[in-house]
Design a protein around this nucleic acid. Sequence first.
DNA 1: TCTGGGGTCCTAGGACCC
DNA 2: TCTGGGGTCCTAGGACCC
Length: 411
Amino acid sequence: MHFAARRPVCERTFVRSEATILHADLDAFYASVEQRDDPRLRGRPVIVGPGVVLAASYEARAYGVRSAMGAAQARRRCPRAIVVEARWEAYLDASKVVFEVFAQTAPVVEKLSIDEAFLDVAGLRRFAGSPTDIAARLRREVREKAGLPITVGVATTRLLAKVASGVAKPDGLLVVPPGGELAFLHPLRVERLWGVGPATAAKLYDRGVTTVGEAAQLGEPALVEILGRASGRRLHALAHNRDPRPVRMRRGRRSFGSQSAFNWSSRSHAALDARVVALVDRVTRRMRTAGRVGRTVVLRLRFDDFTRASRSRTLSRPTAATEPILITVRELLEAAMPMIRRQGLTLVGVTVQNLDGDGAAVQLELPFDGPGRSALDAVLDDVRDRYGSDAVTRAALLGGDPGLSASLLPE
DNA sequence: TCTGGGGTCCTAGGACCC
DNA sequence: TCTGGGGTCCTAGGACCC
């Protein structure tokens, strides 16, 4: 017998009787695109670089090559590896094709990065089959249309779907059945959880915690004490497979940044300034293309010993113009010069955040192109594009002269 | 393990206002 | 005049992810 149990509405996002969340993740994405486009690379260890490993094919990973590894070390571990230079346009094109398949598969797609997304397939059973069927078909279609291998995890929560795809990689499909969540999750090592990196793992090891189950047993107060409030609570929730966040369209980005390695050993102030000008130019150009403005300008520095520092200043008005941002960055840089002279410099970066007054009520001004729904739709589309579909419910529309605008209330 | 470039979120202290 | 507590904004740093 199979029927939907009645549950209080407030539990709907917490408890699902069916695993309907898919996490779809392309395998060794950049390397797979290279193998797809050059038959000579198929079945062979491929490293996308150069300089640092951006992606390694599974053949290369078998030799211990990992992304973010230095090229020299990667070559030592796998001398036979073929190193190719990244082709960003090819990756963006491939990603576009894959996301079109996603969009045709589910009504709600949450993009996490160029090569992975969550899909919610709840309510599709009658005309699209079970989530398992849908996931299998998705993998087939990505293979056919994009020529790429993809792994899909299916579960009742986002977290678990992501963990499942991680376990199933490469070129796999793993469904965690409802009721079997904790049995699947608890034996895994804590690093499998989203947000547990080396620093958090080390703190947990100190307390003798190595598996998700052990973390779950520790209890929330103990985890908060070890990791701090937000991280402790989150880890406790995740260890019990409580991930109430629904799959939703992503809200817009929150910053624009650019950085590049820089060697201060030349001791040339002119060279450093030229680099900074180029960074500011790149960032502001991207902002103008996207039609976004920002208020907080951040100068990022990395020193010879790989420690980092940042210096920031918040402008009185948001902007995407090169000049005010460049002036600000130069002032921050001037103030930081003693530190740079003392500690050397290996990287310099510029980030602009606080976009559109982030967090506060946002005014979105659009030209009013006559009465009717078109201007309204344009404003709402803009809100949706920037802040996600759920933000529309928080947008208060203001009619006025000369334009129609929406005020986005803080969450 | 000698390290690229793009992001996100959280914390904590100080300034400032009421 | 002295004082408390709360809220918001800004700045800097840390951890994590792809």
